[in-house]
Simulated scan of single mutants.
Amino acid sequence: MGTRLPVIFQAKQIIRRVILAPIATDVPKGHFAVYVGDNQTKKKRYIVPIAYLNQASFQQLLSKAEEEYGYHHPTGGLTIPCNEDLFINLTSKLNST
């Protein structure tokens, strides 16, 4: 249980940066935008519910994003470095639970 607390704290830090960044008008309340794609492909923007932050599998993606980009990514958005198909598969599973 002690290992999960730092991950939640890190997720909150990421969300604060996303919220404090210039907000697009097409992101509904209770959601945030992420950019998904590996280094070889163009990044695609997705709108995801904040509730995903409580899911261990999504927290793993956030940890991977921190390892790859850190918290100060030059584009200003939250970028998740994974295959788009993997992201869609994961979010589909999260939507069905």
Rank of each mutant, 00 (worst) to 15 (best):
G76T: 02
L94V: 08
L5I: 15
Q13G: 03
Q13K: 15
V36D: 01
I15V: 15
V7C: 09
K12G: 10
L94R: 10
Q60G: 05
M1E: 11
L61K: 02
Y46M: 00
S92G: 15
Q59F: 02
A11H: 10
Q40R: 02
E68L: 03
T41G: 02
I80W: 02
G70L: 02
P22I: 06
E68I: 06
Q40D: 03
V34I: 14
A65R: 02
T41S: 10
V34D: 00
R17L: 14
K29L: 15
E84R: 15
I88E: 06
A11C: 14
A51G: 12
H31V: 03
K29C: 13
A33E: 11
S57V: 06
V18L: 12
H31K: 13
A56R: 15
N89V: 05
Y52R: 01
E84Y: 08
L20R: 13
K42N: 11
I14G: 04
V27R: 03
S57P: 05
S57W: 04
R4E: 12
T25W: 04
V18G: 00
T25Q: 14
I23F: 08
T97W: 07
E68N: 12
K42L: 10
T3I: 11
G77S: 07
K44M: 10
L53M: 15
Y71D: 09
K12L: 15
K43L: 13
L86R: 09
F58Y: 05
Y71A: 08
N39C: 03
N89E: 12
P28R: 08
L61V: 03
A51M: 11
M1Y: 08
V7Q: 09
